[in-house]
């Protein structure tokens, strides 16, 4: 009667579901965060304004509030999606300002001279960002980006608890509540499976950091 070993298949499918949320969140928040960072350094004032407003508002909202906006606000506007889509979207939106700010610190570390040299050979703003500034900014931003992403993986549990269902957290809740297992071993199992996501993620980030360090 081991709560974890007896339900390994349940845990495994919960793990895959959580991993899915994490991966969507990873791709989505990196893409959206990069876009917002590009807005924030763009030469167009209205884009800069939008980027700053986005970061200021969303970074200061609790994750649960962002989640509720998606889950209850959007249906009122006639937009209906599954909780899974809403949950993942909320996670992406919530994480994007943190990604943006981590990247922006990297952008500021790239010398202004290189950006000028890029413009001087005729690259457009987007090209100089994509070819010269961002590739270097990503490399210097890996440590802060890593913290942001690991925090996001953990926030994926909050998204799970909120009703996506079938993820690791819901599996644990189901086992402890409905099937009457002791909570402590069940949650230990949940924790172990989460570590299976976050620890390798941390290791990959550390490896990346060493691999792509720029010779200066």
């Amino acid at each position: 009667m081991d709560p974890v070993l007896d339900n390994l298949d349940l845990y495994w499918s919960g793990f895959l579901r959580s991993l899915g949320i994490c991966l969507w969140g990873l791709v989505g928040s990196l893409a959206l965060g990069t876009l917002i960072a590009a807005f924030r350094v763009s030469p167009i004032p209205s884009l800069r304004w939008f980027g700053t407003a986005w970061v200021t508002v969303i970074r200061n909202c609790p994750l649960t509030v962002v989640l509720f906006f998606f889950a209850f606000g959007f249906p009122e506007l006639g937009i209906n999606r599954s909780y899974y889509v809403f949950g993942v979207s909320a996670l992406i939106v919530y994480t994007s300002p943190f990604v943006c700010e981590a990247l922006r610190s990297g952008i500021n570390a790239v010398s202004a001279g290189q950006a000028e040299a890029a413009r001087a050979i005729g690259l457009t703003f987007t090209q100089s960002l994509g070819q010269v500034v961002l590739p270097q900014a990503f490399r210097t931003s890996i440590p802060p980006l890593g913290s942001v992403l690991i925090a996001m993986f953990k926030n994926a549990a909050v998204v799970g608890a909120f009703g996506v269902g079938q993820d690791l957290f819901s599996v644990g809740k189901g086992l402890a509540n409905a099937q009457g297992y002791d909570a402590l071993p069940v949650l230990t199992g949940v924790a172990v499976f989460y570590l299976l996501i976050t620890l390798p993620a941390g290791a990959i980030l550390a490896l990346l950091e060493r691999k792509v360090a720029i010779v200066r």
Binding site: G113, Q114, E116, A117, A120, I121, G122, L123, P135, Q136
Partner: peptide, 24 residues
Amino acid sequence: EGKELARLRAEVGMVFQSFNLFAH
């Protein structure tokens, strides 16, 4: 602004005091 300006800059070479090569 924009594309026209980028095209002009391509016609004018510039060499800076601090080299400004792309480090990566």
